[in-house]
């Protein structure tokens, strides 16, 4: 989420090496995605979920997170993928108005990334992903897509 700032700093050549950021990574289908660690409240296992009838198909249900009601969002559906094949993990995001859980296939490591390897989303990424991904980190042998949380959490009913 702080990519904007990070980029601004990145332009300043001397500070590049100082500016590293930690990302919490996860897998969704064949995508390798990440969100800035400070946006993540916690990662929890599959929770007992209560479906919410009549809500958007992106809402998988609501879960009880230590007494707080947290909406769990179907990220696979958001990326136009088929349903989860195994019990998903919850990445609980600190949103402006309370936590929101993103359901993902698998949790990766927390990685420390240098802003110098950051690039804007390439044109070739398909339209839906391009909307949800704010940028890409070039890693050895693979790409880490940075998930745009604003877009992922806020959606219109039509989405």
């Amino acid at each position: 989420m702080n990519i904007g700032n990070a980029l601004a700093v990145g332009e300043n050549e001397h500070e590049v090496s100082l500016k590293v950021q930690q990302y919490c990574t996860f897998f969704l289908g064949d995508l390798y995605l990440g969100v800035a660690v400070e946006d993540v409240q916690e990662v929890i296992r599959q929770q007992e979920m209560t479906p919410v009838p009549l809500s958007s198909p992106l809402v998988k249900g609501i879960v009880n997170l230590r007494g707080q009601i947290v909406t769990a969002l179907d990220l696979r559906h958001r990326f136009g993928m088929s349903a989860y094949e195994k019990p998903p993990m919850n990445i609980v995001i600190r949103a402006d108005d309370g936590p929101v859980s993103l359901l993902v296939d698998e949790i990766g490591d927390v990685v420390e990334l240098d802003q110098s390897s950051y690039e804007a989303t390439p044109e070739t990424v398909d339209k839906l992903s391009a909307e949800l991904v704010t940028g890409v980190f070039k890693l050895q042998g693979k790409l880490l897509l940075v998930l745009g949380l604003d877009k992922a959490i806020q959606f219109s009913e039509a989405a």
């Binding site: 919410v52 009838p53 009549l54 969002l73 309370g98």
Partner: peptide, 13 residues
């Protein structure tokens, strides 16, 4: 308990 904004618009709850 209040519902998240993603489901606030569902007025049956």
């Amino acid at each position: 308990k209040p519902l998240g904004k993603q489901i606030k618009s569902v007025n049956t709850f």
